[in-house]
Amino acid sequence: MKNSQLYKGSLNTIIMKLLEENGKMYGYEITQKVKAITAGELNITEGALYPALHKLEAEGILDVEIEKVDNRMRKYYKLTEAGEKETINRLSELEDFIRNMQSLVNPKPSLEF
């Protein structure tokens, strides 16, 4: 991942947001979707993706479904009910974070005389 330390804390939220929008997704699909949305700027590696998915599953935020696709099985991840609620909270936190970082990086000049 480019600038991995900057994105590291947001990976779970990114995954949850994608699943909220797309219903259920499989691992490779998540990496490709992120790559497409960011025009190749953000590449999620397998070493980052699967630990994040497994952690979210262990926390009860994600559930899995198995389906047969072509001549193999595919594991889909989807948000649980608790996961949907948690996604709203985390997106709100991330929005606050982005807003605060923007204020810090590009402070608006104050008009004081």
């Binding site: 499989y26 490779y28 397998e46 699967y50 099985m73």
Partner: peptide, 12 residues
């Protein structure tokens, strides 16, 4: 539980 998703990811 691991092999299914790793195999599918590699195959895709």
């Amino acid at each position: 539980d691991l092999k299914v998703e790793v195999l599918d990811h590699i195959a895709t």
